[in-house]
Simulated assay, not measured.
Amino acid sequence: MTDMLRAAGAVVWRGDEGDPEVAVIHRPRYDDWTFPKGKLKAGEHMIAAALREVREETGMSVVLGRALPPIHYLNKGRLKRVDYWAGQSSEGEFTPGEEVDELVWLPLSAARDRLTYAWDAGLLHALAAAPLATTPLVLVRHAVAGSRQDWTGEDALRPLDSVGRAQAATIAQVLPAYRPQLLVSSPSLRCVQTLEPFSSDIRLEPLLSEEHQDGDKTPALVGEISVPAAVCSHRKVLPHVIHTLSGKDVHLRKGAFAVLHRLGDQVVSVERYSS
């Protein structure tokens, strides 16, 4: 069976979230109007690919919001999946080039009329279906740290292994999508090392550890975070925190993460990703 082609992009928006404008690009090679997107490079995380493709095709950096429904279609007889996110424009300026020669900012109704493909127009419905300006909370299960049974020292000092270090490097490439202003971690070394490739400015919280977690205090601690943030903890801690905050049952593999998009105290969407 032929592997599915993977691509990623964003519906880039600006202005009033109640009446936003979106960026629609023209590609001379195909003579079409569409949203910025492109194929994943080998080993590239789809979130990192979305950031890169938006930057390459529009010149802009974005802050990712909610995931939008993925698009599937046949490309030369091969199934292709494109993952999209809402992306708020934050900085940068468009410069015409060979791949993209024109970019226009349009309100949703005009963008729908301009777009070449019906599936792109469908993304606009999803964009308008829930709040755009949300606050991301990234909850990370620590990366792979070898076998607990094979480690002879104190468990809190068990470090990441080579697989875990690669996962941590991927997480560092993904976190810029959410612009975290705060990093919080269990004091366990494997949790700290999972976030360190992104930044060493990490606040340690014993309530996020396996030994000192509390069924009420730990979710309250995380729920009180009001800025974009990344939190790293353990398998025995995170499912309860996520369920308490969102009502969703989410279990994470080592190195995986959940993104909770919040509007005040309300969680409007929950996404789960591997690294």
Results as ranks from 00 to 15, higher is better:
R6Q: 15
R6K: 12
R6V: 03
A7F: 01
A7C: 02
A10S: 12
A10K: 05
V11Q: 07
G15T: 03
G15W: 02
E17C: 04
D19V: 00
E21D: 14
V24C: 02
V24N: 04
H26W: 07
P28A: 01
R29E: 13
Y30C: 00
D31L: 01
D32A: 13
K39T: 10
K39N: 10
A42I: 07
A42V: 13
H45T: 01
A48T: 13
A50M: 06
A50W: 05
A50E: 02
L51G: 03
R55A: 12
R55P: 00
E57A: 03
T58Q: 08
G59T: 06
S61M: 06
V63D: 06
G65C: 07
P70E: 06
Y73H: 14
L74H: 06
N75F: 11
L79E: 15
K80M: 14
K80F: 00
R81Q: 15
S89G: 00
E91W: 10
G92K: 09
F94C: 07
T95E: 15
P96W: 06
E98V: 13
E99M: 11
W105V: 05
W105M: 01
P107L: 09
L108R: 12
A111M: 02
R112N: 00
D113Q: 15
T116K: 12
L123T: 03
A130V: 01
A133I: 04
P136N: 10
L137N: 04
V138W: 07
L139H: 09
H142R: 09
A145W: 02
S147K: 11
R148Q: 08
D150M: 07
D150G: 00
W151F: 15
G153A: 11
G153S: 08
G153I: 09
A156Q: 13
L157W: 11
P159G: 09
R165Q: 15
Q167S: 11
A169T: 14
A169E: 15
T170A: 15
Q173N: 12
V174L: 07
L175H: 09
P176T: 12
Y178T: 06
P180V: 13
L182M: 12
V184R: 14
S186N: 06
P187A: 08
R190I: 11
C191M: 11
C191T: 15
Q193K: 10
E196P: 05
P197H: 11
F198P: 08
S199F: 03
S199C: 01
D201N: 13
L204W: 06
L204S: 04
P206V: 06
P206W: 03
L207F: 04
L208I: 07
L208K: 12
S209M: 10
E210W: 00
Q213Y: 14
D214T: 04
D214K: 10
P219M: 08
P219T: 11
V227R: 13
V227Q: 13
P228M: 10
V231M: 09
H234T: 10
H234S: 07
V237I: 10
P239S: 08
I242R: 07
T244M: 01
L245Y: 02
L245T: 08
G247P: 03
D249Q: 12
H251D: 11
L252G: 08
L252A: 08
L252T: 05
A256R: 00
A256C: 07
F257I: 03
A258G: 03
A258L: 05
V259E: 01
V259Q: 02
V259R: 09
D265N: 14
V267F: 04
V268A: 05
S269C: 09
V270S: 02
E271G: 00
R272S: 12
